[in-house]
Design a protein around this nucleic acid. Sequence first.
DNA 1: GTGAAAGCGCTAACAC
DNA 2: GTGTTAGCGCTTTCAC
Lengths: 344, 344
Amino acid sequence: MPKAKIDDVARLAGVSIKTVSRVINDEPNVREGTRAKVRNAIAELNYRPNLSARNLASHHSHLIALIYDDPSAYEVPSAGYIIRLQEGALRACGILGYELLIHPCRYRDATVADEVKALIEHARPDGIVLAAPLSNMPKIVRALEATGTPLVMMSPGKQNGSHLSIATNDREISAKMTCYLASLGHDKIAFIKGDPDHKAVGNRYLGYLDGLDQSGLKFSEHLVAEGDNSIGSGETCAEKLLHEEDRPTAIFAANDDMAAGVIRVADRLGIRIPQELSVAGCDDIALARQVFPALTTIGQPLSAMAERATSALIDHTRAGKPLSGAEIVSGAIHVRDSTGPAPA
Amino acid sequence: MPKAKIDDVARLAGVSIKTVSRVINDEPNVREGTRAKVRNAIAELNYRPNLSARNLASHHSHLIALIYDDPSAYEVPSAGYIIRLQEGALRACGILGYELLIHPCRYRDATVADEVKALIEHARPDGIVLAAPLSNMPKIVRALEATGTPLVMMSPGKQNGSHLSIATNDREISAKMTCYLASLGHDKIAFIKGDPDHKAVGNRYLGYLDGLDQSGLKFSEHLVAEGDNSIGSGETCAEKLLHEEDRPTAIFAANDDMAAGVIRVADRLGIRIPQELSVAGCDDIALARQVFPALTTIGQPLSAMAERATSALIDHTRAGKPLSGAEIVSGAIHVRDSTGPAPA
DNA sequence: GTGAAAGCGCTAACAC
DNA sequence: GTGTTAGCGCTTTCAC
């Protein structure tokens, strides 16, 4: 428990507290020698600035809030998604001397807007990172905007005004995955759509269409099924698709959970993967490496996105860097064992 | 952004700021009528106390730190474990008006003790919740103790002094699982041990031995394999166990990941579960419900444990409640599809 | 480049 | 029951 205060450091270094303050905050206008003296005094006393005092005087909380969909509210195990967001946000906070506040939020609750607003007014973070799919919910975005706190949204941005949005190129990379499957000789490539609430997931369907187009394949309604992002819905869709008379040789699902459902059904039906059926997913969650065969999927740089979002926010409050526009970071295809050449 | 301060509320309510402070903090010695007047003024002005000012004056940070093993450091997907800890800790914090600071920590790094110490001295939380397996690492525990911050450990407690430990009855419940398998007619029950770093996992082996004893089964060295908590090690162990001449009819693994590895191997070897082999795990992670067949396992009330740990810490700082001893919360067996009667 | 004074918005200790 | 007076430990003016 460090009990030294700024006065103690000032006295030991033989300077004023203001100079100590300058050194702590890396401000200019301190001679190098003076700076060194202060640094020594700080080390000798094991001095740590008191954050509350600093925050009170500076009108900053040095807190960033990360708001995401509450995983405990549903069966869907999005834990990996959240951990990776946290990881990136923590990295940015750590480097820049900020603290991270986490807030899972149940968007289906009627009172969610008030709760989120209350949280922000209570803790007064200097910035908010809002993760998908919450970033697509107008009532939540509006509640957050109403607090006047700088906001970065991790989702395909509508560019509406004063906040930055950071997203992946879901559509392009999904097109690429479709082309990859086509390049393996598949000409009946099915797609399993995901929860319409999740905009990024919707874009993957558009990418699938683009990919068909780019590969010179024609679209067929029979090759599209509609899931809800869960493993169970992936199974239902797979059963429908694989019982068609002219069944697909490849299935591309809008997320990994549904792709895992496809694998499970193929297993039950005795359809070998990848010899008779190729399966591809999206997200690269831990499950993608745990299923057998390991799933070919699209990896999103979630942690890097969250880090970027967080540091943009911090740069904004510290240096007044503008916070608007839309940034795109690229996903990557991870080829594993669930995809292979089309059967002859 | 609420800009009203305590003076504004006091003026509007026609009382002194001290009275407002009393109302905010639910202190006694305020007449009900006065209290109501203040409440109205607070609502009218949408007043929120400034946490930094409050913290500075009260010498409390109103922060609880949750420290756990960094999941990004390894392949092991312990995300669900962490999310559930966070969930419980957040619940306690939310109710009691505290904020939660999360800190993943790489215990294999040489500098980990310094890092943890620096974090605590920087943020000055009012209490620390230390999750397993970190709570079994003397160098981390010592570094944390050195800061003088109240500490609760989520692991089998050594009762060493001034901090509380909260743990599950791993040994008893593992014995129960073993007895359950025996009650299904299995008499060759194998066990896969886990990472020795994780003490709770070690206790499960002792529970296995107790269970054999209680069921009147004799122990055999050939029925024990040593894993490291990963899926891969589960596979290796399963291969060894299932190739024995007199192979077991049930395998109990010290965690779910290893049990999932067993299922995968059985699948490859064409051994049907549960008809020819029963498999049981421990932890009830999301994967347990995702594998096929769904895994019989032991569920730990992680979220409840973290909530208890957090509120114990808050009660300690607020009301000076003592913080020592060891509390035990009970796990529960979830019977799913991977266990059944022993083959005739 | 450096320093002195004046708060930031609240709680603590005591008076009334 | 309620109010008054001092700080909490820092940053912010602005003067030098």
